[in-house]
């Protein structure tokens, strides 16, 4: 479904030129849960931008669902992002002072989904993302971090994208809340067959995926199956009962 072949990305020109990606090639099949990890400066953000169709590679080809997106214009890329990709950001990026439902419906506005269908789909996405119904009409700034990130996941889901791209989704969350969010992603992958690419620099977050791709200095240094992915739901249960106050916040 995702085919990257010999992707490079160079910023600047001449003496100042800096090559962030130096020939990346890999394939991600439908239904995979892949972690891309690497320290800062490894090129994982640049790679995320290219996979997310926010940027185009300097050379190489990127085929997303049988379409070559590596030479598309800005507006063509916007179309692809609208239909094929759901983003989950580290900084959440919900619209402030706006209800949960409206936030989730936002991608449908640009996708020209009829108004009466939007709310139905947004509710379904929120349920899949594990947010309880009584929070649907809350304003985004009245929610806890874990709830906010699940709203963001619902927003990524609502357009039924081919790929969910999560960029450090737990970066602003505490460990317990991180597990809840990871659990949500795992459930979407296992139960609903969603293709998920998780970008992180933390190994213990990355290990929740079924496949690990490690980057260093703009190259893939390892691409391997994870034989024993960590199970976020199980780990959450370890927290349960030990700290009631945290558990309450999460519900």
């Amino acid at each position: 479904m995702i085919e990257l072949s010999d992707i490079t990305k160079t910023y600047g020109e001449g003496q100042e030129a800096y090559t962030a990606l130096k020939g990346i090639s890999f394939t991600i099949r439908e239904g995979e849960f892949v972690s891309i990890m690497g320290p800062s400066g490894s090129g994982k953000s640049t790679l995320m931008h290219i996979i997310g169709c926010l940027d185009t590679p300097s050379s190489g080809t990127y085929v997303l669902e049988d379409r070559d997106v590596s030479t598309m214009t800005d507006d063509e890329l916007a179309e692809v992002r609208k239909d094929k990709i759901g983003f989950v950001f580290q900084a959440f990026n919900l619209l402030p002072r706006t209800t949960v439902l409206r936030n989730v419906m936002l991608p449908l506005v640009y996708a020209n989904v009829p108004e009466e269908e939007r709310e139905r789909r947004a509710r379904a996405a929120l349920v899949s993302a594990g947010l309880s119904e009584d929070h649907f009409s809350h304003l985004s700034n009245q929610l806890s971090g874990g709830q906010i990130q699940r709203v963001a996941i619902a927003r990524a889901l609502v357009n039924d994208p081919a790929l969910i791209l999560a960029d450090e989704p737990t970066g602003n969350l505490d460990s317990k809340t991180s597990l809840v969010v990871l659990g949500t992603l795992q459930k979407l992958n296992r139960a609903h067959g969603r293709t998920i690419v998780l970008i992180t620099h933390e190994p213990d977050i990355a290990e929740h995926a079924d496949r690990l791709i490690r980057l260093r200095d703009g190259r893939v240094v390892a691409d391997e199956k994870n034989p024993t992915p960590r199970d976020a739901t199980q780990e959450t249960k370890l927290y349960d009962g030990t700290d009631e106050s945290v558990t309450n916040k999460l519900s």
Partner: peptide, 16 residues
């Protein structure tokens, strides 16, 4: 700025 970035990320075109 970030709202604009988000809108673009989820598929808003320049014209939008």
């Amino acid at each position: 700025m970030r709202e604009i970035g988000l809108r673009k990320a989820i598929g808003a075109t320049r014209a939008d």
